Computed example of a mutant assay.
Amino acid sequence: MPSEMTLDVLLFIISIPVILKSSDVFIEGTSKLAKMLGVSDFVIGITIVALGTSLPELASDSYASYIDHGNIAAGDIIGSNITNIALVLGLTCVIRPLTVKHTEIYSGKMHLLILTLASIFILASGGIGRIGGIAFIIAYILYLWHSVRVYREIGVETIGKDGFIKNVSEVLIGLAGILIGARFLVNSIIGLSTALGVSEYLIALLLMSIGTSLPELSVSIQAARKGYMTMALGNIIGSNVANMLWIFGITAVIRPVNIASGVIVVQLAFMLLLSALLLIFKSTGYVIDRKEGAVFLGIYAVFVLVSIISGSNPTGLHQ
């Protein structure tokens, strides 16, 4: 057991710089491709980057559902959405205040509406079955179509096509590094937590969600440092919608997930509160400043404490 824990610690330490460097390469490649193709940073962030950084959740949660552990998938998806706003966006805005264009406010409304409707459906249905999963997937495709149509030409800065192959290679290499690093990180966290006897749902809700959200954290921080603020925002919003509709949908299609509403209602309330605050902060002065970023971080700390104290009883989640 000690040797296994040592290996998990080493994997944890190694995976972080791998993800950070890969994210740096990935963000450079995607931003340049966006300009070459005449597509805005926001659209790239809300589609390609969001889907790319959500792949760890997709792979991990699909596998968890396949092996009849839907409680892990549910905890990871809800936990990741909370982590994306409270921790990822909070840290990003503390590092550099996020300036928001007026034309991007609508996406925040759509983001809140989608998460609210999906949460109501899950609570009312006691989970999500295969038909519901298919409906979620179709809704996500329509969301992508709408986003590209509305925001395609907002803030476009076209550059030449020189270096196209190089930029595509950077995207692929960066994405591969993110996925490999995230996989190592998730495995190490699960290994350590299992050795300590922590429940699956709590692991997924608090620890696994951080591991699978690390790509979003890395990409958003790197985007903020490089001045691609709309891409950072698009990444957060796009990842949350992808998690709730695309990943939850695929997970349910693989195997229906039944969730006792009493188990997840508190976490869903945190998720919707953060989504509403995101819309409010975006709408006031069109800047999410360092103080508002600190508010997100404070809410995340409360969320962690409440989840630990309540124990997030996993027995209410069953297949």
Rank of each mutant, 00 (worst) to 15 (best):
V25P: 00
D289W: 00
F184D: 01
A223N: 14
F281S: 09
V263L: 11
P17F: 04
S307F: 08
H318L: 06
A232E: 12
K109T: 11
L305I: 14
Q319P: 05
S275D: 07
T92N: 07
G181C: 04
T158G: 03
K282R: 04
A242N: 09
V304Q: 13
M271Y: 12
G127L: 04
A232V: 09
E216T: 00
G45P: 03
G160C: 06
V156H: 08
F136M: 09
I173D: 04
S220M: 05
E4V: 05
I154V: 13
V265E: 15
E153G: 03
A252V: 03
L179N: 10
I159T: 14
G90H: 10
V39R: 10
N71P: 00
L172C: 04
G155L: 04
L185C: 06
H102D: 15
G160V: 06
L123Y: 09
E157F: 00
I154E: 13
V156R: 01
P56A: 10
S193M: 08
A301H: 07
I137H: 01
V9T: 09
G227F: 08
E153S: 13
N313V: 08
R255M: 12
I122H: 02
L89I: 02
V287W: 06
F270Y: 14
T230M: 10
G29C: 05
S23T: 00
S312I: 06
S125A: 13
L202Q: 07
A269G: 02
L7Y: 06
S3L: 13
G108R: 10
K282S: 12
Y106R: 04
S147T: 15
F42M: 06
A50M: 03
P314W: 04
E200V: 01
V306F: 13
I141N: 11
I77N: 01
S213C: 14
L179T: 10
I122F: 04
Q319I: 05
S147I: 08
F136E: 12
L117C: 11
A64W: 01
A118N: 07
D41C: 02
A301W: 01
F164A: 06
D24C: 05
L33M: 13
N235E: 14
L58N: 02
L217I: 11
I236G: 11
V171I: 12
V253R: 00
A204Q: 11
E4D: 09
F296L: 07
S218K: 02
